[in-house]
Simulated scan of single mutants.
Amino acid sequence: MCIPKKICPVPYDQQPINEYASLKQSCFFAWSTFNIFRYIMNIWIIFCVLFFMCLPFTFSLVSVKQSLLETFLFNIILVTGFLLFIFIRLYLGWSYIVKRLVSASIFYEESGWYDGQIWIKTVDILTKDRLIGMYEVMPLISRIQYSFICTTICFALEISLYYLL
């Protein structure tokens, strides 16, 4: 997927299409590209793993006076908070990629922070990048946003329930 140096002076790892490919292959970001059933299963697995990992920490935080139900609810609140941070990180990663794919100009660094350049994409590359951005990355961002909203609603309900107990 590398664009020849004659056409694009941007280094290989800073080209938006290659940044997209590396993000899509990374372990953390790849599971957000799966089909909806596998995506929800991964969220559920992450939730369960975090639940059992945070359980000792939760038992050490809560007082002896609290019931077992309150302790488990506090643990669920803690895990849901971690999930919110995971969705924020997913959103930030994918939104950075879509911004670079859709943009007509690309900022890149040749060898360090002090020598940044701007490259204007050709029409063919811009068209290809925008198609990938709009039809492959934007649905992922919408899915992550929806997941974040649902998790935020659950988080608010959990906190409300915890204070009602």
Rank of each mutant, 00 (worst) to 15 (best):
I77F: 07
L68K: 13
L55S: 13
D13I: 06
I3M: 04
K99T: 13
N75T: 11
I153F: 14
C54T: 08
S60V: 10
I3C: 04
C27L: 11
Y108K: 03
I141F: 05
F59P: 03
E19M: 12
L92Y: 12
E158W: 02
F74D: 01
K121C: 04
S22H: 04
S60D: 05
I125R: 01
Q15A: 02
L164V: 05
C8Y: 05
T33D: 08
Q14H: 05
I153W: 07
F52G: 05
I149F: 13
L157Y: 06
E19P: 00
F82G: 02
S111P: 00
V123H: 09
L68Y: 13
K65Q: 11
Y12T: 13
L23Q: 07
L50H: 10
P139E: 10
R100T: 12
Y135D: 03
V137M: 03
F47A: 06
F85R: 08
S60K: 14
I159Q: 06
D129P: 00
A156R: 08
S160F: 13
P4I: 05
S22Q: 07
M134Q: 09
F29P: 00
I106K: 01
F107H: 09
S147G: 10
L78K: 10
K24F: 07
V64P: 02
D129L: 01
L61H: 10
L140Q: 06
P16T: 00
N42K: 13
P4V: 02
L55Q: 09
P11D: 11
I106T: 11
I144S: 12
T151I: 06
Y114S: 03
G112V: 00
N42F: 15
L140D: 03
K99N: 11
F51I: 03
D13E: 12
F85A: 11
Q145M: 07
S63N: 12
A156W: 06
D115K: 13
S22L: 01
I125G: 00
M134T: 09
L101A: 08
Q14C: 03
S63F: 06
F87N: 11
K6I: 04
Q145T: 09
I43A: 10
F52V: 15
E110Q: 09
W94F: 14
W119S: 02
E19S: 01
I125C: 01
F59M: 13
W94N: 05
D115T: 12
V98R: 12
G112T: 01
K5C: 02
F52Q: 11
D13K: 08
T127M: 07
S26Q: 10
W94V: 04
L68I: 13
I153T: 12
W113I: 05
I77E: 04
L126V: 00
D115W: 05
I88Y: 14
Y163H: 13
M53P: 00
V64D: 14
R130V: 10
W113Q: 05
T33L: 14
T58G: 07
C150I: 11
K121L: 04
N42M: 15
D129S: 06
D124K: 11
E19W: 00
C48P: 00
F47K: 05
I7A: 01
S111W: 02
S105K: 15
S22C: 00
K5I: 09
R130Y: 04
I159D: 02
E136W: 03
L73W: 06
R100W: 07
I36K: 13
L126H: 09
R100S: 10
